[in-house]
Lab assay of single mutants.
Amino acid sequence: MLEGKVKWFNSEKGFGFIEVEGQDDVFVHFSAIQGEGFKTLEEGQAVSAEIVEGNRGPQAANVTKEA
């Protein structure tokens, strides 16, 4: 698991990027966000996630919002 913060997230398109210190930004799709209801993230929000290899490079999986 790694910790980072949301760089930006487009709720209409359902994707965005997470900033991780010392690494390239990581793509995040709404389907990777854990929880019930409408899955979205806010800019600057702290999150933790796993990194997996997607079709277009590294992407976030099992994204959870930090308190």
Rank of each mutant, 00 (worst) to 15 (best):
V63Q: 01
L41G: 02
I18H: 00
N10Q: 04
T64A: 09
E66M: 15
A49P: 01
E43M: 14
E3C: 15
G22H: 07
W8E: 05
E43W: 13
V28S: 02
E36T: 12
S31I: 04
F27S: 02
A46K: 15
F38D: 07
A49C: 15
N10Y: 06
E21W: 11
K5C: 11
Q34P: 05
F38C: 10
Q34Y: 09
I18C: 04
T64R: 15
I33C: 07
F27K: 01
I33F: 04
I51Q: 04
S11N: 10
T64W: 14
F27L: 03
F30D: 02
F9A: 01
S48Y: 14
D25R: 06
N62M: 10
E12S: 14
G14S: 01
E12F: 12
A49F: 15
R56E: 06
E19G: 09
K7E: 06
G44C: 08
A67Y: 12
W8D: 03
I33Y: 03
K39I: 06
E36Y: 10
H29W: 04
V63F: 00
M1F: 13
V52M: 09
E3N: 15
V47R: 00
T40D: 07
V63I: 06
F17Q: 02
G16H: 01
Q45K: 07
K7I: 08
G35I: 08
E42V: 14
T40V: 08
M1R: 15
I51V: 11
T40Y: 11
K7Q: 05
D24Y: 11
Q45N: 07
P58M: 10
E36F: 11
S48Q: 13
E12D: 11
N10S: 11
Q59I: 10
E42P: 03
A67V: 12
R56T: 07
A46L: 14
L41D: 02
R56C: 13
L41F: 04
E50A: 11
A61N: 09
A61C: 12
D24P: 15
L41H: 03
F38Q: 06
G37A: 05
G4H: 02
A49V: 15
D24T: 10
F15I: 08
H29I: 05
G37Y: 05
E66F: 14
I51G: 01
G14R: 00
S48L: 15
E53A: 13
G22K: 03
Q45P: 00
V20G: 03
I51F: 07
G54L: 07
S31G: 06
A61L: 10
N62K: 12
S48M: 14
V28H: 02
W8G: 02
N55P: 15
K7L: 06
Q23Y: 15
F9P: 03
N55Y: 14
A61V: 13
G37D: 05
G57F: 05
N10D: 11
G16A: 02
H29V: 03
E19Y: 11
K7V: 07
E21G: 08
F17K: 03
E36S: 13
Q59V: 11
A67Q: 12
E53W: 15
V47W: 00
E42I: 14
P58D: 05
V47L: 03
F17S: 01
E66L: 15
T64K: 14
T64G: 07
A49Y: 15
I18L: 10
V20N: 03
F9I: 02
F38E: 06
F15S: 00
A61M: 11
A60Y: 02
R56H: 10
K13F: 08
M1L: 13
G4Q: 00
N62S: 10
E12G: 10
A61S: 11
F17T: 03
F27C: 06
L2V: 15
G54M: 08
F30T: 04
V6L: 02
N10E: 04
N10W: 09
E19W: 10
I51W: 07
E12K: 14
Q59Y: 15
E42W: 13
V63W: 00
T64C: 11
G35F: 08
E43C: 13
F17A: 01
G54H: 07
K39T: 05
E36G: 10
N62E: 05
F15C: 06
E42S: 13
V47H: 04
I18V: 04
V52A: 08
L2F: 15
V26W: 03
A67D: 12
E66V: 15
K5S: 08
G44S: 06
E21M: 11
L2E: 06
H29Y: 05
G22Q: 04
K7S: 05
A67L: 12
F30E: 04
Q45V: 08
V6Q: 00
Q59N: 04
L2T: 10
V26Q: 01
E12H: 13
A32M: 07
F15W: 14
F17G: 00
E50Y: 14
G14F: 03
Q34H: 10
V26G: 01
A49K: 00
Q34D: 08
H29D: 02
L2R: 11
V20K: 05
R56W: 15
W8Y: 09
E53K: 13
Q59K: 08
W8F: 07
R56S: 09
E3R: 15
E50W: 13
V20E: 03
V26I: 14
S48N: 10
A60Q: 01
S31A: 06
E21K: 12
F30H: 08
E43F: 13
N62H: 10
T64Y: 13
E43G: 12
K65N: 07
L41Y: 01
Q34T: 11
G44H: 06
E42T: 13
A46D: 07
S48R: 15
G57L: 04
R56A: 08
K5H: 11
F30K: 06
P58A: 08
V47N: 01
P58E: 05
T40E: 06
A67S: 12
A61Y: 10
A67K: 12
W8K: 00
N10A: 07
